[in-house]
Design a protein around this nucleic acid. Structure first.
Lengths: 211, 211
DNA sequence: GTCTATAACCGGATAGAC
DNA sequence: GTCTATCCGGTTATAGAC
């Protein structure tokens, strides 16, 4: 009755998810047809609607499978850093869970979803990101007590921007840099850049509010 | 024989360009139909192919109209800053031309194109961005003589990421921030953040090469 | 230059056999 | 659970009248 258990690597459902992840990442939701996906996954067209109801809920499932573990790892890393984290620890907790092996195939997709306004962005934001944003906003406040609330918001936003840009354009980075790209090296560069950005001098003339 | 001269605001061609800019920005290229555009522009469906040959070349025209002046303004600002610009002057030359009134309607579209790998990104990159990247890479080198070549590349990439993120998500920013957003304020926050990021300590253990 | 009409095709979804 | 066959609406593009 129940098909392959979750996480099994070659069931029909999983093959569909993998193919969908690939095409949605490469060509976007509207640029991908269910026929692209079923051909790649070598399953019948009707299997998609049987297992996932619709193209849109298939996309939801694809995103869900990857975003949840990333955010869990982020929270764990913040917890591990304790109540007085350094700026570098906060930044690292934010970005490094996206630079690990097992989310690698989903990187273009995640980058695309987080880079563009869409029905999916809004759903992901409400379901998964709001809590992450609040948690990281608090962590930044703990690591930079003098930074006003509004500037914290913007700097978090800019940080997310640099990160999603790297993810979304990871496929064309070799074209731009003219040389092969090492994931670990990018991560270190990114943490350095973002940490310095977060530590920028406070702009507001009045910085009364610390929380 | 010749229709409205370029720049005229109510010719058929211009109305198509404006409507296309709006929809391509809101829903993306694949998510927009020519019927969306012709309905909005109140022109006949066939007018698009008559004036722009195809949907794809229409998109090229929409992008071209906005990117060129932005890059021209960037170059002018770099020129005005002279041979020894400050970091702030370089950053401001990079981002501020996108925060002016007359590119405002194109902001979501530009954000989208620069945020996602696509046929358009690659074309825009080769035709418009390579030269800008090289010029700004030199300007950063002039403002930060100790920064190695590779780190310059990455920091420029991260800077572009923060900026395109702000552009692409400008439509949903009120949702995220919970309050209305002032363009000028965002620009100042962005320049502050990015300037500090560019000035981050050098990472490479060997920083022999200055150029 | 602008219209109507239509060609030619592709999309997501589903009914129903097995 | 998985298949074939098909419905049906929407898509770009063009031919040809005006």
């Amino acid at each position: 009755m129940i098909s392959a258990p979750q996480g099994t690597q070659s069931g029909t459902k999983t093959r569909i998810l993998n193919a969908a992840e690939k095409f949605f990442g490469e060509k976007g939701f509207d640029g991908t047809s269910l026929r692209d996906i079923t051909t790649e996954a070598q399953v019948n067209l009707a299997a998609v609607n049987y297992h996932f109801q619709s193209k849109e809920t298939l996309m939801d499932a694809v995103i869900e499978r990857r975003i949840a573990p990333v955010n869990q790892r982020r929270m764990e890393m913040l917890d591990a850093a304790g109540p007085s984290p350094t700026v570098e620890q906060v930044v690292e907790a934010f970005v490094s869970p996206l630079f690990v092996m097992d989310v690698l195939p989903a990187v273009p997709l995640i980058g695309r979803v987080l880079s563009n306004p869409s029905q999916f962005f809004e759903r992901v934001y409400k379901k998964h990101l709001i809590q992450v944003v609040l948690r990281f906003s608090d962590a930044i406040a703990a690591s930079l007590p003098g930074l006003p609330r509004e500037e914290r918001f913007w700097r978090l936003h800019f940080m997310a921007g640099s990160m999603t840009h790297v993810l979304a354009l990871s496929g064309v980075l070799p074209l731009m840099s003219g040389q092969p790209v090492q994931r670990g090296a990018v991560l270190r560069q990114l943490v350095t850049f973002l940490s310095a950005g977060l530590r920028a001098p406070v702009l507001s003339p009045f910085s009364e509010d610390k929380k």
